[in-house]
């Protein structure tokens, strides 16, 4: 409640004293949904460089990463933002899961510890976001509690949300199921890895940030 009040005050005074500011665009979602792959795709499209490293092992991104001053253009419009790539939010982190991915015990324990801190940071940063893109793996069950909690939390904070169903290049992808789970939101199916449907993604980004 206090946070919401603080955010309201921030927005109010920012509106009074700053004519234009870069919005903070956050990439949120569970681990391995493709947040960093999408961040890299956006950065490659508009800056010609990557943002972070990607991996098949969950919790590859364990620290908040910010790429400032990205400007995208579409149909005569321009949008500038600071892109914030966040660690995946999870309710459980078991170092033994990392062992299955081939990591050694010390390495796995270190990764687990960093991953827990990453989740805490992601949650703390929620308050600072102006717009959030929720990146979900469209081959997975959309009804997980983490997805529902993130979406509900952003709704309570009145932060505009765009839901991205990533990995549509895979056979198991099911965008319809995502739309059924979150009927009140704009949803776009993309493949961040191969750049499929990115034009549609940018169009919706303009729509929700206007």
């Amino acid at each position: 409640m206090i946070n919401m009040f603080k955010k309201f005050l921030n927005k109010f005074f920012n509106g009074l004293f700053k004519k234009k500011k870069n919005i903070k665009l956050g990439l949120y979602g569970p681990p391995n949904g493709g947040k960093t792959t999408l961040a890299n795709r956006i950065c490659q499209d508009w800056l010609g460089e990557d943002m972070g490293s990607v991996s098949n092992v969950a919790h590859e991104t364990r620290e908040i990463q910010v790429k400032e001053q990205i400007s995208i253009k579409s149909k005569g419009k321009e949008l500038s933002f600071n892109l914030v790539d966040t660690p995946g939010i999870a309710t459980r982190i078991d170092y033994e899961d990392f062992l299955k991915s081939g990591l050694k015990v010390t390495e796995a324990k270190k990764r687990a510890k960093e991953a827990t801190k990453g989740v805490i940071d992601s949650i703390k940063w929620l308050d600072d976001m102006d717009v959030v893109i929720i990146v979900l793996d469209s081959t997975k069950d959309p009804y997980s509690q983490v997805n529902i909690t993130i979406v509900g939390n952003l709704e309570a904070r009145k932060i505009p949300v765009l839901i991205v169903g990533n990995k549509i290049d895979l056979k198991k992808a099911n965008i319809k199921k995502l739309q059924e789970a979150f009927p009140q939101y704009d949803i776009v199916g993309i493949s961040a890895k191969f750049g499929n449907h990115m034009d549609e993604f940018y169009d919706l980004l303009f729509k929700i940030t206007k």
Partner: peptide, 24 residues
């Protein structure tokens, strides 16, 4: 939803030893 998010945060803070998190 704020409490749910806070529960996840607190859970992360307490992961240690046998406790590996929650399912909710």
């Amino acid at each position: 939803k704020d409490e749910e998010t806070e529960l996840i945060k607190k859970t992360m803070e307490e992961i240690k030893g046998k406790f590996r998190g929650i399912e909710i």
